[in-house]
Nucleic acid binder design. Structure first.
Lengths: 217, 217
DNA sequence: ATGCGAAGTAGGGAAAACCCCATTGTACAT
DNA sequence: ATGTACAATGGGGTTTTCCCTACTTCGCAT
């Protein structure tokens, strides 16, 4: 079996040296190239076909987030494992959205790296426990924030029905046709919605609905 | 040290029986109660102070999602570990948003449950690898969908300016005042926006903007 | 049994949004 | 220099939205 070809991207030479040694100690891994920032990496992948990229996030010139995005745009099958030092990481969401296959701390145990490489190489993904915890915490924060804001008023059935249609982009006339009611009635229901939500026209109402997640995308 | 007090919620008695036995085999765990659906669980927690809840998701009467939401509303410090059978789970996001501390497959290994209980009891959280993979896949799907849709038209500076104000809920008059232009001009810019986006009124335009993430919440 | 409030149904008229069309200015190419 | 393209600015007139008011129905409490 061929060795798994790995590229290292990190701005600290010392870290790369240490990490390369660690990886080479796995018999099934070969470090085929290194880059010290995003730009260097992007030109590098033109000439090398790697299986897995270990990508630092904080780097000068072009950081890991943008480098990953650009690389994946051109080579969507690239498998990237993001590396981060601390847990106060604001880039987590961005990096996940960029489409990385793994995310772990530089301080992880040797066995973790081994596990991660194998899993990602086989088409899976790997996230260290700390990262998962962090993500979960962020979700919780989000939830609490929403909860606080959500003293939503109560809507009647008709109002909910009308609001749904409004948020689909229907005008009063179309809503009237869809519900077999007169335009005037629709207008009244909208008026009630305005009052209950503290808005004063349709656009505001739609914005309100989106912000309070009453409607789904 | 006291035993960790656990409540089981699942509609299948056989599963509860087997799972209880499994848990009791850990010397540090005590199953103090069981419920066969969400409603039963909600009345149960009034009388029991549990450390950890194992909560099935698909249940008759009141499912795991709503039960968890309601329970956590009343007792925010409750620690819930969600259990699911299959991986085709549409409730994943909802359950995470509800604020569960863990999420795992019923088919998990014994050691996994042990690990999960300890971690969650100590204030952490636990998600099985399969769940994490699923979540990551969903994120990837989301990303790809956004990418595909994002052949957004190009807007002129004025148009962007007007669009921003529209999405703040401003009417034509207010936008005109804010930009020192005539209402008619604003109307024309909006008209251009309609054409470029394929929409035909302000409400539709706002919806378009939200869906394509042109504006931020 | 009756009264009272809340939801659902509309009309008339004012205000805002929208469509078709015209003018000006600017950049860029021939 | 001149034509083409397009952004930016607006006017006139129609359509839609919005506000104020009114009537009916239904549940529910006195």
């Amino acid at each position: 079996m061929d060795k798994i070809k790995v590229i290292l991207v990190d701005d600290h030479k010392i870290f790369r040296d240490g990490f390369r040694m660690l990886l080479q100690s796995f018999s099934f891994v070969e470090v085929i190239a290194e880059a010290s920032n995003g730009n260097e990496f992007l030109s590098l992948i033109e000439d090398h076909s790697a299986d897995i990229i270990f990508m630092d996030i904080n780097m000068p010139q072009l950081d890991g987030v943008e480098a990953s995005q650009k690389a994946l745009e051109k080579y969507p099958d690239l498998k990237i494992i993001a590396l981060t030092t601390f847990l106060d990481d604001d880039y987590l969401e961005q990096m996940l959205m960029a489409g990385v296959e793994g995310y772990m701390l530089k301080s992880a145990e040797i066995e973790e790296f081994e596990k991660a490489i194998v899993k990602v190489y086989e088409g899976g993904n790997y996230f260290s426990d700390e990262i998962v915890s962090l993500l979960s915490d962020k979700l919780n924060m989000l939830r609490k924030k929403r909860k606080k804001k959500d003293d939503l008023p109560e809507f009647t059935d008709r109002e909910k029905e009308v609001l749904e249609l409004i948020c689909k982009g229907y005008g009063n006339k179309q809503i009237a046709e869809a519900t077999f009611l007169s335009i005037k009635t629709i207008e009244k229901h909208k008026s009630s919605l305005f009052q209950k939500t503290g808005t004063y026209n349709t656009v505001n109402l739609v914005i309100y609905a989106f912000k309070h997640q009453i409607i789904k995308f």
